[in-house]
Design a protein around this nucleic acid. Structure first.
Lengths: 232, 232
DNA sequence: AAGTGGTCTAGACCACTTA
DNA sequence: AAGTGGTCTAGACCACTTA
């Protein structure tokens, strides 16, 4: 542990909390008091406490001071990787086999309440992502035409939709939902497993950067040997 | 968007990146240049860039400067909630029904290579967490005796192990792994579902705060209507 | 009204990395 | 050797929240 600097202060406070010397709810010394104790400027204490608040270890409020949080709710960092990227990450060659590609009406989840009309069109794709020669993910997706016009231009070989998406904008926002289901015969055939086997599913809902309306849904199904990991 | 302050600088840079005016790999102006541009102190720019680096939007290296990251790997915040807490969070009453409780040898994953001997003992528990009257989670766990002596004192009514854990230390670290499996007849009976139904599983491995060795494993199985969500 | 934290400034020194 | 970011200081003013 560093002997000086804001990390020393962070370490000191973390230890007091971990050792339960300062239990949840405990009121911490003020920034000024800690600055005296550590013989440093208040800005240094402020950085230490600010990071602890960011990490949800303490709660800070003006005038009320800083308190140790009830730590029963923690956060972990989960890596978000679209299918093409996930295959690359395990060091295998990514290959996409398109199965379906059709224009359809917007599914419920992509219908924005306000604007209706000609944008009311949607591309639905279905395909399998291979890691080398092994089927890895079965993908079924919907894309609003007004948000992704370039996906509708089917020029040449059909690329995986996520590849086109990431070329357009590598910084999408949205939500991820993880669930389990039983493989139906289509999913089982394309993933090379038995019907009724358990699947892990990720459902990404991508949102527009400006108004936050949903613009795409990607449903990705994985074989039961797949798992998702993170640390906390 | 704020017109001044470090948030204005963050917003400006975020916009340049989102609009692809500054594509991945692009070299940002130096802190000094941005301080001139925004007519502020370098410390203010430093805070803005520091937060963008924290959020993995940019990469920063001394002398090399700050660059826009390849955004294809994003991070999402996943809430970590132990079973008792998860039931409370949906507003239901938490009740734990213990099914098994036995001393056994350490499973592989809890064996620390270095220290062996009398601590070589483990508590294995099995139980069901109810949300109100509905079975919600089937839990199977292992705890090292040397790390959780208080769990071995079976005084009075048996509490859920996670409750005792959180009383001892609300700030555990460890890893979470999410997978899917088929319900066997024990799991199916206790969760009130059919054998062969798909389950979502969480496996928590808790580690010691000091040396990082694993001290407990909690395997939690959920019915297929359960899902895990996060935003990114 | 008074006590907190939030943010900013102008300057400083240094660590690290590249050339 | 030179340019960048990392961190710190001493001081300032303010916003917010409680009493």
């Amino acid at each position: 542990m560093p002997k000086s600097g804001y990390l020393a202060i962070k370490g000191y406070i973390s230890n007091m909390i971990r050792s339960k010397e300062w239990p949840p709810g405990h009121l911490l010394p003020t920034e000024t008091e800690l600055a005296v104790q550590f013989n440093c400027a208040r800005a240094t204490v402020n950085r230490a406490l600010g990071e602890l608040a960011e990490e949800q270890i303490i709660d800070r409020r003006r005038k009320a001071g800083s308190r140790v949080r009830d730590g029963r709710e923690r956060m972990a960092n989960l890596k978000i990787q679209f299918p093409c990227r996930e295959v690359e990450a395990i060091g295998k060659e990514h290959r996409y086999v398109a199965l379906k590609r059709e224009i359809c009406a917007l599914p419920m989840i992509l219908q924005s309440s306000s604007e209706m009309g000609q944008s009311d069109q949607c591309l639905r794709t279905e395909g399998v992502h291979y890691a080398g020669d092994t089927p890895f993910q079965f993908e079924q997706s919907w894309f609003r035409r007004d948000a992704f016009p370039e996906l509708f231009e089917a020029g040449g070989k059909v690329k995986a939709p996520c590849v086109t998406l990431l070329e357009k904008n590598p910084f999408y926002h949205g939500s991820l939902s993880i669930s389990a289901s039983k493989a139906n015969h289509v999913e089982a055939r394309h993933l090379g497993i038995k019907m009724g086997d358990p699947l892990i599913n990720k459902e990404y809902i991508l949102t527009d950067g400006h108004d936050g309306t949903p613009v795409a849904v990607m449903q990705i199904r994985y074989k039961p040997d797949y798992s998702i990991s993170c640390i906390f």
